[in-house]
Amino acid sequence: MHTTTSVFDTPGAVLLTAWCVVMWAAVAVLTRTRHRRPPWAYRLALAVTAVGLVGQIGHVQEHVAQVIYWLWHPNDPGWMTPLGDSLARGYGQLTGTDPAVGMEVLHLVGNFIFLAGLVGAVLATRHVASSSAHRWARMGVIMQGIHGLEHVALTVTAAAGLPPVGLSTWFGLLDAGPGLWTYRVWWHFLANVVGTIVFTVVVAKFWRERHRVGAAWAELTTRA
């Protein structure tokens, strides 16, 4: 990880955090309005889903880049793109820690943006009986929820000055070195690729069901 600072490090981290907070605020609003079903709730759920998908596309590209770098440098520590490196430094500055902890915070925020998008898909399709998109979205929430909890554990333990503890570190039992670096790079790459595939399936199935979903929301809104 590079140590050269930039004036964009902290503002970038602040903006990414705001992105995550706004998405979860929207999820909270949608949850609170599930009984009243205002006309704008469906559009808001779609927006949360779309923004989450955009965020995950950027997130998974970071992991793809890490794997490509690993192929040429398998014994080096995990690499980050210049943007990811800048955001990690920004989170290190915001939290008063080093960039390594900032990196954990960055991936925590990125994963919760992804999770919010999947929750948005669940909320958008919840009123359609036998919705395949809804089932896939719920599966995605469970999978990404588990992965998100791992990132919480990684971030908390790293911030406490301990070796990061999670599935990608064998709960802190792997010593720093090529074995740990390789395992973490590939673990998070596969977790994000699988999650992105699930999200892509959700979007594809929603597109096929969009008329049923829209009609169900329109009927509920009329009743309300």
Results as ranks from 00 to 15, higher is better:
T3A: 15
S6F: 08
D9T: 04
L16H: 12
A18Q: 11
C20H: 04
V21W: 01
A28H: 08
A28S: 10
V29E: 12
L30Y: 02
T31P: 06
T31K: 12
T31M: 14
R34T: 08
R34W: 10
P39L: 02
Y42Q: 13
Y42M: 11
A45P: 00
A50S: 10
V54K: 00
Q56T: 14
I57P: 00
G58R: 02
Q61A: 15
V67P: 02
V67C: 05
Y69R: 09
L71A: 12
D76N: 11
P82F: 00
D85I: 01
L87A: 02
A88W: 02
R89G: 00
G92V: 04
D98G: 14
G102Q: 03
V105H: 05
V105P: 06
V109S: 03
N111Y: 15
F114A: 15
L115Y: 00
L118E: 08
A121I: 08
A121W: 07
V122A: 08
V122E: 08
T125Q: 05
H127T: 06
A129M: 01
H134E: 14
R138L: 14
I142Y: 14
M143P: 06
E150I: 07
V152E: 07
L154P: 04
T157W: 11
L162K: 05
L167Q: 06
W170S: 11
L174S: 02
L180I: 11
T182E: 03
W186A: 11
W187A: 13
W187K: 07
L190C: 12
A191R: 01
G195T: 07
A204G: 09
F206H: 15
F206W: 15
E209G: 09
G214A: 05
A216Y: 04
A216W: 08
A218K: 07
T222G: 04
